[in-house]
Design a protein around this nucleic acid. Sequence first.
DNA 1: CGGAGTGTTAGTCG
DNA 2: CCGACTAACACTCC
Length: 286
Amino acid sequence: MPELPEVETIKNDLRKKTWGKQFKEVVSDNPKMFTPRFSVARKKLIGSKIKDVFRRSKLLIIKTNKNLFLLIHLKMTGQLVYSPKKGKIIAGGHPIVNERNLPNKFTHAIFYFKDGSVLYFNDVRKFGYVKLVDKKSLDKILENFGVEPLNREFTLEKFKEILKKRKTGKIKQVLMDQKQISGIGNIYASEALFYAGISPLCPAGKITDKEAKKLFKNIKKVLQKSIERRGTSFSDYVDGEGKKGSFVPLLKVYGRGGKKCKKCGHILKKTRIGGRGTVYCAKCQK
DNA sequence: CGGAGTGTTAGTCG
DNA sequence: CCGACTAACACTCC
């Protein structure tokens, strides 16, 4: 699930809660998800302390005191749950699966901290990964990401440049191309295009200056709105009482194929772009 | 029951 | 360099 707003939400929560925590033990039933080898990563991690938590694109970056960065990618179905020794449990990423007891069968990595708190990495499909890298490899990894859509360096000019560069590509694919703009996935690409009134199939090069401006604004708006609401399917629960992320009711097209357009009432069309399900209103989006 | 589809992305091939 | 396609995996929906 997690796109930029979801990872941003987790990052904000974890930064507050885990600052200074020291790793005591790491356990995994799926060592394949670790780089370097689990046994090596585990040894390196134990004893190190969390100094900060960042986000770049959809990647969560946990900085420790030993020139060591713990990278976590949740991919499609990853979920992080932080359980403090005392107080509120926080969870983010893929919506909470039925079983609330932790660890459960989807828990593939457990990070124990010295103070008794625990971070669980759950992942139904096991696409997610954990990487432990030094500053140098971190920088190399980060080089591959395009501009952060919420940062100041993502300007209208920059956006137009990207559209020009990828003129024959379908606009939705360009929005989702992490090398161009990083952090936008299927949900927010679909939603931003709806608000801008642009068909996801439109070639990037055919987008006029006026449309580009509208799309540019809506990309930022949709992401910001979602962060305000803690993401699309972010879950936050106390004492096992689940509460869904509140962006879902605001979705205009994503996941609504075959239903009525909330703006004009036409049946929303479902198609496939670059192997990804795509929903749009053929009447509102040209 | 079978098959298609699922919020991601790395890798391969033309 | 680009775009198209696939695999990685497990579950849900029709």
